[in-house]
């Protein structure tokens, strides 16, 4: 057990270090900050002299966008993390030795989570500086949202790892990930579109489709890591401690389920591409 822990630590150290030596990581954070800066500037420009704008947490929407961009980067990274090593063959070399699916996947999960936490630390710094510059306010709510962000990233990473454990090659990982996320979005889009149309305007088949997409939409709310993102930030806005803790617990359970599923799948699927 202790040796397994050391193996995990070694894998984590290596993976983390070399992820930090890549441009992609900094590029993703930069892109998210650029988007946030754009949104914040627009927000400020929207308030004319002698006017007001009532908004819950003006930094929350940029934070949401930042989390989405960072999560997208991390979900892609984790989605290819196993398949890339499978494809490159490096996974097999690790498995000649003391590495097991569990130690490998936990180290990968922790690595991506640590990258996420580091990105959130950058985000906290960015928003702090932004709030000092503009007086937009680095509130406790924002700090709570950032902490919630850790758990949301945990969901995103574990989901990505699961996709990666299923697929043999990087290309199929990305296609699978995009197909799943695309399907989530499509269901959400169709659901919202049909919801916006009066029942009387819908034929029986479309009514059936609306009912089906409504069930699917509810299902997606439990499967899609991005649904956890929205709900988690909602719980911060609502300032409901119980809801907040419940969401954290949901995220922990979600992450555990997907990491264990990934370990199981990887054990079955093997290390070969």
């Amino acid at each position: 057990m202790m040796k397994n822990g050391k193996v995990m630590k070694t894998l984590l150290k290596r993976d983390l270090l070399y992820a930090l030596y890549s441009w992609g990581y900094y590029g993703a954070i930069f892109a998210s900050f650029l988007a946030s800066s754009f949104l914040l500037k627009n927000f400020l420009d929207a308030i004319r002299e002698e006017d007001i704008l009532v908004s819950a947490f003006p930094l929350n929407y940029p934070l949401y966008i930042t989390l989405i961009v960072i999560s997208l980067y991390l979900v892609i990274m984790s989605a290819i993390s196993i398949s890339r090593e499978r494809e490159q063959g490096t996974l097999e070399v690790l498995f000649y030795g003391p590495v097991t699916p569990a130690s490998f996947l936990w180290s990968r999960y922790l690595k991506d989570l640590t990258l996420g936490i580091l990105a959130l630390a950058f985000t906290a710094l960015y928003f702090y500086v932004a709030s000092v510059l503009t007086n937009l306010g680095f509130t406790i709510g924002l700090a709570k949202a950032l902490i919630m962000g850790i758990f949301l990233i945990s969901c995103v990473v574990s989901f990505g790892l699961f996709i990666s454990s299923l697929t043999g090659r990087m290309r199929s990982s990305i296609i699978t990930l995009m197909a799943i996320l695309g399907a989530f979005l499509a269901i959400q889009f169709v659901y919202n579109m049909l919801l916006g149309i009066e029942k009387e305007s819908l034929s029986p088949s479309l009514l059936y489709l609306r009912q089906t997409t409504s069930y699917l939409f509810r299902g997606i709310n439990w499967i899609s890591p991005f649904a956890y993102l929205s709900r988690g930030l909602d719980s911060v806005i609502l300032e409901n401690r119980t809801l907040y803790v419940t969401h954290v617990l949901y995220c922990v359970i979600y992450s555990l389920v997907f990491v264990f599923l990934s370990i199981y799948t990887m054990g079955k699927r093997g290390v070969k591409a």
Binding site: V7, T10, Y18, V93, Y96, P98
Partner: peptide
């Protein structure tokens, strides 16, 4: 057990020194 496989797969971003340190830590 020590293994040399038919095809060599390496982390290309590492140096030989770093690579061996990594495996030395892995095998303690």
């Amino acid at each position: 057990i020590g293994v040399v496989a038919e095809n060599q797969y390496f982390y290309k971003e590492m140096t030989a020194q770093e690579y061996l340190i990594f495996f030395a830590e892995l095998y303690q």
